[in-house]
């Protein structure tokens, strides 16, 4: 898959002041080789270059957590990382979680009514996915601390915490591995 920035008007384009940078990365299990403007951040790269609009933007300064993705197993706010920094790394977005059926962590979020407008849900799901990679079985208090980097104005968080707690309880093996990484 080869992309050139000139085909994407969203951010940067033919008027980028600097030369494009080579990028060789893995997105949701697929190899992506492309060129990106040096000042393009990961969230815009995912949304505008790859069409993965499940990753949302809420503040673009690392405060709200809407844009959280998983990079090499760790939760990362994708508005604070440059696309060129993905070189040689593997990134996982919310689009990777479900197959025909929802992934257990998604099902748990729905079952516990852990979302209302749903704008923050990808941020919580990817934060939980990264938490799952750490293994163990976090307490409610620990879950609250771990997800405090993602804001929500709808739910009051209680049901988000319940959903992640339930996911860990019902699917310890998947929580431990983070689930299967599927292709885009």
């Amino acid at each position: 898959m080869t992309e050139t920035a000139t085909s994407h008007g969203g951010t940067d384009g033919e008027h980028a002041p600097a030369a494009l940078v080579e990028l060789d990365t893995t997105v949701n299990g697929d190899a992506v080789r492309t060129q990106v403007p040096p000042r393009l951040h990961v969230a815009d790269f995912l949304r505008q270059h790859l069409g993965l609009t499940g990753t949302h933007l809420g503040c673009e300064q690392g405060s709200c957590g809407m844009c959280t993705v998983v990079v090499d197993g760790e939760a990362v706010k994708s508005c604070l990382m440059l696309a060129c920094q993905l070189d040689g790394r593997s990134v996982q977005t919310v689009e990777s979680l479900a197959g025909d059926e929802l992934a257990p962590v998604q099902q748990a979020l729905s079952d516990e009514h852990g979302l209302q407008c749903g704008f923050c849900s990808p941020g919580f799901l990817m934060t939980a996915t990264a938490l799952g990679y750490q293994g163990g079985c976090p307490s409610r208090g620990e879950i609250r601390e771990e997800i405090a980097g993602v804001l929500c104005r709808c739910t009051g968080y209680e049901n988000v915490v319940s959903a992640i707690e339930r996911w860990f309880a019902e699917h310890p093996q998947q929580a431990g591995s983070g689930g299967e990484v599927r292709s885009v």
């Binding site: 499940g54 990753t55 998604q106 979020l109 729905s110 799901l125």
Partner: peptide, 14 residues
Amino acid sequence: DERLVRGDGRFTDD
């Protein structure tokens, strides 16, 4: 829920 937890919502910026 289904579309939103899949990242398949359509917000204005999408």
